[in-house]
Amino acid sequence: MASQGTKRSYEQMETDGERQNATEIRASVGKMIDGIGRFYIQMCTELKLSDYEGRLIQNSLTIERMVLSAFDERRNKYLEEHPSAGKDPKKTGGPIYKRVDRKWMRELVLYDKEEIRRIWRQANNGDDATAGLTHMMIWHSNLNDTTYQRTRALVRTGMDPRMCSLMQGSTLPRRSGAAGAAVKGVGTMVMELIRMIKRGINDRNFWRGENGRKTRSAYERMCNILKGKFQTAAQRAMMDQVRESRNPGNAEIEDLIFLARSALILRGSVAHKSCLPACVYGPAVASGYDFEKEGYSLVGIDPFKLLQNSQVYSLIRPNENPAHKSQLVWMACNSAAFEDLRVLSFIRGTKVSPRGKLSTRGVQIASNENMDAMESSTLELRSRYWAIRTRSGGNTNQQRASAGQISVQPAFSVQRNLPFDKPTIMAAFTGNTEGRTSDMRAEIIRMMEGAKPEEMSFQGRGVFELSDERAANPIVPSFDMSNEGSYFFGDNAEEYDN
């Protein structure tokens, strides 16, 4: 993207840094990872977990959730003011799984939030270390993106479920800051804005008074975040219109849905970061690795190297396929839920299948599930090659597409044709070009129609051997075009429920 120079890199967003050079960025990201790792080690000690239990991804998720809940100030305040039966607002906890007599047992633990905050700050040299908290939120978000298709949420806001490739980060909490905003897809931002506008339509006082002023500035800020994701002048001009509207209503909703559809071809720039579970960072720190000293990046080879040398386990339900569970977590670790499966298959070195073909449910185990038949197995999170994460949407291309997802959002900077089903997408653009945004709409449609099938995206960008740390010898991959490109292809993934 041309304006790259004016933006802070995501590592800076990730670490609240002012302008830093590459070495400083690597050190501050490393410091953040160190903090998460030290916190995780301490929690495993508190909970008396064995090494194996500490490497269980379900335990990692519970521990991450506990610290996120302990620092969720708004919710904590709300819980104190609106006490609900049987919930102690000062405590947080969740299921911890232990191996007892050759069987997995679930144990519900409860801790004072104050105590968890103390352990977290102690692991982070006394700081609140917001960057580390956001990092864990993005890992949870990436896992949700890989596990669930947001059909219901899309339909509720009037969008087409086939636009799911635009929904990265749709389950990120509001408090995820600049680093969170960077990884949100165009569809996620559109959905947040539509929800806001709908509230304004239904509630006369939404934009009024002292609160209304705050609401208005939040609305304009979200519009600017979305505008910054678009790469064409016409899309940005249309966002200006939406932002400046005196009284946002149905016309703005129409414009936003139009823009979301246009992003299936004229893709937005959305950041991709490899955020790993805390149970990967903990053992690495415990083994003596100093992330701050060595430096770390979320968008280069580092996460690949770390996963190459990590042992992570997962509980497996009786009829689940461990290899499929591994694929789910591998995609989440690489922030690749909406990437082209052919690119992923090449990088991973084994075939990556669409969601609907995987015999696996989510990673988390519900409290009512029976533990008797639970097994555990090693997650295979290694890769054959590594590639640089991208934040450009890439230019655009036609490809055989599917009944489910009709476009992709690249996660890796790797040369390819970008699949999208042009006739299906263009069919949504018939007729409606009147109104105050008509010239911009016409211009956007013209650009979409001009998108050429034979153009290559990320020209000359390749993948790298894991021994090639400096990215000196790019390998331009070859793809098996007979395979499906979309992950949520004609899909039956479970729906995400809060």
Rank of each mutant, 00 (worst) to 15 (best):
Y219K: 04
Q58I: 03
M43K: 13
K87L: 01
R342G: 15
N473M: 13
S402K: 15
R246W: 07
M137F: 09
Q168K: 07
V186A: 04
E294D: 12
M66I: 10
K48Q: 14
R19L: 03
D145N: 10
N498S: 10
L315K: 08
K227C: 09
D240W: 02
A85M: 02
N473A: 02
M1R: 11
R106N: 12
A181P: 00
P277I: 06
D203L: 03
F458T: 02
D128Y: 11
N498H: 09
M13I: 10
M239T: 14
A286Y: 08
I388Y: 08
F420Q: 02
N395G: 10
K229P: 07
E11R: 05
M331D: 03
V285W: 05
Q12F: 05
D112K: 05
N59H: 12
Q409E: 01
K273Y: 04
L154P: 01
G158P: 01
D145P: 03
N125L: 14
Y313V: 09
I41E: 10
D497I: 12
T232M: 07
E469T: 08
C44H: 03
A218D: 07
L328M: 14
T23H: 15
R342K: 13
N309S: 14
R26C: 01
M163P: 00
P89A: 15
A178C: 03
Y148H: 09
G356C: 08
A286G: 15
G132R: 06
D145H: 12
Q4V: 11
S345C: 11
N21Q: 03
D480P: 13
A286D: 11
Y219H: 14
I445V: 14
R106C: 06
F346E: 09
E46V: 08
R99V: 08
K227N: 12
F458Q: 04
M1A: 11
R162K: 12
R208W: 04
A493D: 00
I347L: 14
I96G: 04
F346G: 08
A411S: 15
Q20H: 04
P303L: 08
A178N: 14
P161D: 02
T6C: 00
G268P: 11
E294P: 00
D203M: 06
T92W: 07
A234S: 14
V29W: 06
T232L: 11
E18G: 06
E254D: 12
A123Q: 04
G209A: 04
R441L: 07
M191R: 04
S377T: 14
V242Y: 07
E495A: 00
I265Q: 06
T147N: 08
G86P: 11
R236M: 08
G5L: 01
E64F: 05
D34R: 07
N368I: 11
I63N: 02
P303I: 10
A403Y: 03
R152W: 07
K452E: 06
E495R: 10
E320D: 11
K31F: 05
I347N: 10
E484P: 15
Y313I: 08
T151H: 05
E320R: 07
S274H: 03
M105Q: 13
K184I: 06
N211R: 00
S335E: 04
T433N: 02
E449W: 00
S353P: 15
M137K: 13
E320S: 07
C223K: 11
V463E: 12
L49F: 14
S376Q: 06
A373T: 12
Y52D: 03
D34H: 10
L108I: 09
T215V: 14
Q409R: 00
I365S: 04
P322D: 11
A182C: 04
F488N: 03
I36S: 09
R355S: 10
I444M: 11
S60N: 13
I347G: 01
R216T: 13
D240R: 01
W139D: 05
M105R: 06
M189F: 01
D112R: 11
M448F: 02
D290C: 08
V329P: 07
T151P: 02
Q231N: 08
S367I: 00
R118E: 10
L266K: 14
E494T: 04
G5V: 00
D302K: 08
P89C: 15
A85E: 03
K90A: 09
G177N: 04
S482L: 00
S486P: 07
T232Q: 13
L193R: 00
K103Y: 01
A234R: 07
K227V: 07
S297T: 15
G212W: 09
M159D: 03
I33Y: 02
M191I: 10
G249E: 08
D468T: 14
V109S: 06
N368Y: 01
R38G: 13
I138Q: 04
V285H: 14
Q459S: 11
H82F: 15
M191H: 09
R267F: 02
Q42T: 04
A153Q: 10
A27L: 09
A70T: 15
L133E: 04
Q235F: 06
N498G: 08
G209V: 09
M189T: 09
A182L: 05
V285N: 09
D302P: 14
D439F: 01
M137W: 08
D51Y: 04
S478M: 03
S407Y: 05
E320W: 08
T215K: 13
M32P: 08
I265E: 00
M159Y: 02
V414E: 01
Q168Y: 04
L298V: 05
M66K: 11
S353I: 14
L166N: 01
T15C: 14
E24H: 07
P283K: 09
R38S: 11
M448Q: 14
P283L: 13
L306E: 06
S376E: 01
Y40E: 01
P173L: 07
K351G: 01
H135F: 10
N250P: 08
S69M: 06
I116V: 15
G393S: 15
W330R: 09
L315A: 08
I225S: 12
E46W: 07
A22H: 07
G362M: 07
D491C: 11
Y10V: 14
R216F: 09
M136L: 15
I25V: 14
R156Q: 12
N250R: 03
I301G: 07
M374T: 12
K77A: 12
T15H: 14
G450A: 07
E244Y: 02
T424P: 03
D203I: 03
W386L: 10
R382K: 11
G185A: 12
K325Q: 11
A493Y: 13
F291M: 09
T146H: 03
I445K: 08
R152A: 04
R121D: 04
M163D: 01
V463K: 07
L226Q: 12
E375R: 01
K184S: 07
R208I: 06
G393L: 02
Y78W: 13
R355Y: 06
F338G: 12
S457W: 01
L358V: 12
L256P: 06
R156W: 05
Y40R: 13
T147F: 06
T430G: 15
Q409S: 13
P474G: 00
T147Y: 05
R150Q: 05
V352G: 03
S359I: 12
Q311A: 05
R361H: 03
P354K: 04
T15Y: 01
K325L: 03
R389T: 04
M167L: 15
D101K: 05
E244H: 00
L315I: 15
L110C: 08
L315D: 11
E484L: 00
T378I: 10
T151Y: 02
W139F: 14
G35D: 06
N397Y: 00
N309G: 14
S482D: 14
R261N: 08
T146A: 15
A471W: 01
E380A: 05
N397I: 12
Y385A: 11
M136W: 01
S3E: 00
T62L: 04
V29N: 02
R441F: 06
E469L: 10
L47G: 11
S274M: 09
S274F: 10
A131C: 03
D16R: 10
P354L: 08
S457D: 14
A286T: 09
N483L: 13
S297G: 08
V183S: 09
K91L: 01
S165A: 15
F489L: 07
W120L: 07
N370K: 07
S245N: 05
T45E: 02
V312S: 02
G490K: 05
T147K: 09
R246T: 06
E14K: 14
T157N: 10
V155S: 14
A2H: 00
P318W: 04
Y97A: 07
E114M: 12
S392V: 04
M371R: 00
K184T: 05
A2G: 01
M13R: 02
S287P: 10
E252N: 13
D240V: 06
A70H: 02
V343I: 15
P83G: 14
E244P: 10
I63V: 14
G30A: 14
A260Y: 04
Y40I: 02
I225K: 01
E254H: 11
N432A: 14
R55Y: 08
L298K: 08
G180W: 06
E320T: 10
D88E: 03
N319H: 13
D421H: 15
A284Q: 04
G180M: 08
L466Q: 13
I119P: 01
